[in-house]
């Protein structure tokens, strides 16, 4: 199971990095101390030599890590679901920090409430002003409580719609980040029109004349994901998943047994490759072996390249051509 493999890799990472730190420390000390008295130099040199002996160990650890990483190469759909939900996976705030500049956050639906499970505002992407909006998840339990685990209420969808409508008004491209277990199934959420809020977003997003790009970064479940995902182009991170419902919900509806979620994953066709084949995803963005949480920098670099080329391509379309391309994309499905 990927979970155990990842834990082993994490432990090896920690050991390797501590050994490497010691090596850097020892080398630095050696250089520094070489300017000092010879006897001190000798002590430091012993330190360095001691470390050199452990170099073999370092190689061994790295070999082990490579071995475990190779086990992460062909993942099953349920292992991808695990990675898609990994608490250390980069979330929208990480992506904004890594790929955008000049971010100005916009809060609230300006009707009733501020829903923190949706995060967004105006920013620059390669210098181009864009609107960026997406689901917000936390890395810790406390953060997740604050962001309601990325499950929006109608106010969140209306907030997203408000700032996307502004993008349309000012001719800014829209980039959305999808990562949600689904729309929040709560009492107030229903009273405030969860269905209406999602429906309205689908309807309005279909009409925009500005380019809309959606990036599925983690799990994209149900109408709660699609509500900010009616896009000209849909990009998916390699280990992201996108489906009608969470595998647990799917198993519970189909077999009245949420425990059969792994079995559900196999049938649901929810991986990036499946979605590409279905014509829903247009590009797949490579992740480091073992998942995006292992190296944010690499993910940002890969996503930046695909996102920029996709945006450039869409910006060549006329406003009405852009709208038409999006309508045609969804008109074709099913």
């Amino acid at each position: 199971m990927i979970q155990k493999v990842l834990t082993k890799i994490d432990k090896l990472d920690a050991k390797i990095s501590s050994l490497e730190q010691r090596a850097i420390g020892a080398t630095k000390a050696l250089v520094k101390e070489s300017l000092k008295a010879p006897d001190v130099l000798r002590d430091t040199r012993e330190d360095y030599e001691a470390w050199s002996e452990s170099e073999d160990e370092l190689d061994k650890l790295k070999d082990m890590r490579d071995h475990f990483l190779s086990e992460c190469e062909n993942l099953t759909p349920d292992e991808k679901v695990f990675l898609a939900r990994h608490p250390k996976r980069p979330h929208i705030d990480d992506f904004i920090g890594g790929l955008f500049t000049d971010f100005f956050e916009q809060k609230g639906d300006h009707l009733f409430d501020e829903d923190k499970s949706i995060y967004g505002g105006i920013a620059r992407f390669h210098g181009i002003p864009v609107t960026v909006v997406g689901h917000m998840k936390g890395h810790t339990m406390e953060e997740n409580m604050e962001y309601n685990f990325g499950m929006p209420c109608p106010e969140g969808y209306r907030k997203a719609l408000r700032i996307m409508n502004q993008a349309e008004k000012f001719g800014r491209p829209i980039i959305t980040f999808i990562d949600t277990p689904g729309a929040y199934p709560g009492l107030e959420a229903e009273e405030h029109g969860q269905g209406e809020a999602i429906a309205m977003n689908l309807a309005k997003m279909s009409q925009y004349h500005v380019p809309v790009i959606s990036v599925v970064t983690g799990e994209g479940n149900s109408g709660g994901a699609l509500a900010i995902g009616v896009a000209n182009k849909v990009l998916m991170l390699e280990n992201a998943v996108y489906s009608i419902l969470s595998p647990e919900g799917f198993a519970s509806i189909l077999w009245k047994d949420a425990e059969r979620h792994k079995e559900a994953c196999k049938l649901m066709k929810l991986t990036a490759d499946d979605l590409y084949e279905a014509g829903v995803a247009d590009e797949i963005v490579k992740e480091p072996v073992g998942g995006a949480q292992r190296n944010y920098g690499e993910v940002f670099k890969n996503l930046d390249r695909v996102l920029y080329s996709t945006l450039k391509e869409l910006m060549t379309l006329s406003p009405s051509g852009c709208k038409r391309q999006r309508l045609e994309k969804y008109r074709k499905i099913g």
Partner: peptide, 16 residues
Amino acid sequence: MQEGIYSLMQMAKTAA
């Protein structure tokens, strides 16, 4: 459920 993502995308298609 048996039509998965194809079913989900009908929401976008009909709303549009």
